[in-house]
Amino acid sequence: MRLFIALNLPKKERSRIDRAARLLRERELPVRWAEVDDFHLTLKFLGDVRPPRRDPVEHVMEKVAAETGPFEVTMHGFGAFPTIRRPRVIWIGAVATPELRCLKQDIEWGLAEHGFERETRAFHPHVTLGRAEEDGGAGAFRGLDDVVAGIDLKATFTVRSLDLMRSRVTRTGSRYTVERSIKLTGPR
């Protein structure tokens, strides 16, 4: 099954982000927008994980959660990968605090000990709001940079758990379910 480790946002913050992103959705861009209940911040995409490899994943998550206390994450700034003029992903960013970076690094190193490849790209924490459709056409995103610059939102929430998520790909997009949630119990 396709698994990843994520931080799920509280319902209140997901709703605030969704309201702020309404300006983007109203532009009728060639984008498949994520459902508000699916907003999450991915820490590590694992891909297809067979049952015997799931136990080490959960063990690493338990160890990291026991060493990490709850901490604040601030969501701020809309953008796109790879560029705002030719996006594949439209997102809202998260401030890469030392706590968030350490959590990501601890997961990467812990899973590397069990044969999972470490991510070598720079960590750009974000919540995906939508994915551009392949046939958007030239100029489909003209002016998007002005729109995102005009959206002012700062949403802060407390991270209290790590979630092991399952991803199912459907014709209408990915669907996510929490397979296991592990509370952060380490010192603050």
Rank of each mutant, 00 (worst) to 15 (best):
A94G: 08
G69K: 02
L46P: 09
F71L: 03
E67K: 11
P82E: 13
G47V: 06
R50Q: 15
A94S: 09
E28P: 00
P87L: 03
L24V: 08
T97Q: 05
D55Y: 05
P51R: 09
P98H: 03
V36K: 07
I90D: 01
G47W: 11
R88Q: 08
P98S: 05
L23D: 14
A65C: 10
G47L: 10
D37H: 13
G93L: 04
D38P: 00
D38S: 11
P82F: 14
V36C: 13
V64H: 06
R53G: 02
T74W: 03
T68A: 11
V57W: 03
F39T: 00
M75A: 12
E62F: 00
T68V: 05
I84Y: 10
R86G: 04
R32G: 13
I84R: 06
D38K: 01
E28H: 14
M61T: 02
M75Q: 01
M61H: 06
P51W: 08
R86P: 00
L23V: 11
H76F: 12
T74E: 14
R50H: 15
P82R: 09
G93K: 02
A80G: 07
E58P: 00
E62I: 00
T74I: 05
V49N: 05
I90V: 13
T68K: 02
L29W: 05
R32A: 14
K44H: 13
T83D: 14
R85C: 06
P70Y: 07
I90S: 01
W91Y: 12
E62D: 13
I92H: 01
G69H: 02
W33M: 12
K63W: 03
R50W: 10
R86M: 14
I90P: 01
A65K: 01
K63L: 14
P51Y: 05
G79H: 09
K63Y: 01
H59Y: 13
P30T: 04
E26V: 01
P56N: 04
R88H: 08
K44G: 10
P30G: 09
W33L: 12
R85F: 15
F78S: 06
K44W: 10
R32N: 14
A34H: 01
V49T: 10
E67R: 11
V36F: 00
P87V: 03
L43C: 04
T97V: 07
L41T: 05
D37C: 00
G77V: 05
T68I: 05
P51I: 06
T83I: 12
R53T: 09
P56I: 00
L24E: 07
R53V: 08
T74N: 06
A96K: 09
V95T: 13
E62T: 08
E62V: 00
G47S: 12
W91K: 01
M75G: 03
E72W: 09
P98E: 08
A96P: 07
G79I: 06
A65D: 07
P52M: 09
K44S: 12
V95S: 11
R53H: 14
A94L: 08
L41P: 04
P51G: 10
P82Y: 13
P87N: 05
R53E: 15
A96Y: 02
V64C: 10
R27F: 03
R50F: 12
D55H: 10
A94K: 03
W33C: 13
R27I: 00
G79M: 08
V64A: 11
F45T: 12
A65F: 02
V60R: 00
E58K: 09
V36L: 01
P70M: 07
K44A: 10
